[in-house]
Amino acid sequence: MIDVTSNANEYYQALLDRNSEYEGVFFVGVKTTGVFCRPTCPARKPKFENCEFFSTAQEALLASFRPCKRCRPLSSPNEVSEIVQKLVQAVEEEPEKRWKDKDFQALSIDASTARRQFKKRFGMTFVEYARARRMGLAMKHIREGESVIDAQLATGYESSSGFRDAFSTIMGLPPASAGARKVLKADWLDTPLGPMVACGDEDALYLLEFVDRRGLEREVERLRQKMKAAIVPGTTPVLRSIEKELAAYFNGKTLTFQTPLQLLGSPFQQRVWKELQAIPPGATKSYSELAEAIGKPTAYRAAANANGANQLAIVIPCHRVINANGELGGYGGGLTRKKWLLRHEQQYSLDAFHRP
């Protein structure tokens, strides 16, 4: 069980705020009901004196608490519902399909439920998701040399003006200009600390961030502009690779990553990011030590800014940089996650050291 005297007040406030930054960091057992919940549970909040805090779901189970049926603490945060899985599969089977109410009825799915669940999962409604997927398919046809009219018909549009407007809205340019346009796929990955969004193409990973990171939308827009790329829902072998490696990381099987990365930054930023990757799991460096390591000892503020500009959370371990006085410093994903990641890596490294 967590050290209640040092953390209970902090965790109780996170529970009241339904703060997603604390997902996976603690679970709360409610003495009056006998259930335990995740920090973002929508149920009515218990009084402080009726709460017992745990670092893992297993600890809560061993203390005789049963899992809450509303927040389902034994599943991943924002775990994909059966409805979302079913509809995503349907889109992949017929990506050119234009969905109508009768299509939802055929699958015994309420259209408003689909809209709400997709909005929660992807930040867009199902219709927006399906349209973006369809435009990604149209982009693929055009880049492979097909005419715009063929791409229009292949994706189910009878009206050329309707196709052009939809394409321009999602892709950021008209279909006639799309031949050389780059396409990045975006996928949502579940982790014990909350969902992350990953963007990449067939060759490399460009972005990996926690979904609730402040300024994420601006990051995605900067990526789109810098790469002159359309970003659409989907997956690639690179995104499947990072999903597997993140699962291994959180399970404590390995703390290293082999997925190829695309680093988009100035030469100075890239030097900082390369140095971050050289910090061993379980170790930390201060911002001044980071600046010294790249041969710029007086540029610790610039090194800190480059650290904050990292768009590949966990994989490029900016969470391993702390203040010279030992305090955590900043972290885009939230200081609670930073603390958890450092503790996780230190524990893994300790276990590996004692392993025969």
Results as ranks from 00 to 15, higher is better:
190 D>N: 10
294 I>V: 05
153 L>I: 08
298 T>Y: 12
75 S>M: 13
52 E>Q: 15
134 R>G: 00
74 L>K: 07
274 K>M: 08
194 G>A: 12
126 F>I: 13
338 K>P: 01
349 S>H: 00
3 D>V: 00
343 R>E: 01
211 V>Y: 08
71 C>Y: 11
308 G>S: 14
331 Y>A: 10
96 E>R: 07
182 K>T: 03
291 A>C: 03
212 D>V: 11
60 A>L: 11
21 E>K: 04
109 I>A: 11
226 K>M: 10
307 N>Y: 12
305 N>K: 14
324 A>T: 06
280 P>D: 08
240 R>P: 04
280 P>C: 09
230 A>E: 09
236 T>I: 13
255 L>S: 12
200 G>M: 06
148 V>W: 00
200 G>E: 04
201 D>V: 12
240 R>N: 14
274 K>A: 14
258 Q>G: 15
79 E>K: 08
168 S>C: 01
163 F>G: 00
270 Q>L: 14
119 K>S: 15
99 W>V: 12
324 A>M: 05
260 P>H: 14
17 D>M: 03
183 V>M: 10
60 A>E: 07
245 E>S: 15
26 F>P: 10
207 L>N: 04
258 Q>M: 08
255 L>T: 12
23 E>Q: 10
326 G>S: 01
212 D>S: 13
145 G>T: 02
223 L>E: 06
91 V>A: 09
149 I>N: 01
179 G>N: 01
222 R>Y: 07
282 G>L: 04
305 N>S: 13
8 A>T: 07
103 D>Q: 09
66 R>C: 00
279 I>R: 03
115 R>E: 14
311 Q>P: 00
250 F>V: 08
284 T>E: 14
285 K>P: 00
81 S>R: 07
99 W>T: 09
207 L>I: 05
304 A>F: 01
338 K>R: 00
130 A>F: 12
154 A>Y: 01
184 L>T: 03
152 Q>L: 03
226 K>G: 12
19 N>L: 02
242 I>W: 08
239 L>W: 02
347 Q>R: 05
263 L>G: 10
105 Q>V: 11
194 G>Q: 02
300 Y>K: 11
195 P>G: 13
210 F>S: 09
256 T>V: 14
164 R>F: 02
239 L>C: 12
36 F>D: 08
239 L>D: 07
159 S>P: 05
193 L>Q: 05
118 F>Y: 14
139 M>V: 06
66 R>L: 08
188 W>P: 00
78 N>F: 14
7 N>L: 03
53 F>R: 14
262 Q>I: 07
160 S>H: 02
321 V>C: 15
348 Y>V: 03
127 V>S: 13
186 A>H: 05
126 F>C: 09
71 C>N: 06
46 P>C: 11
163 F>M: 00
33 T>N: 04
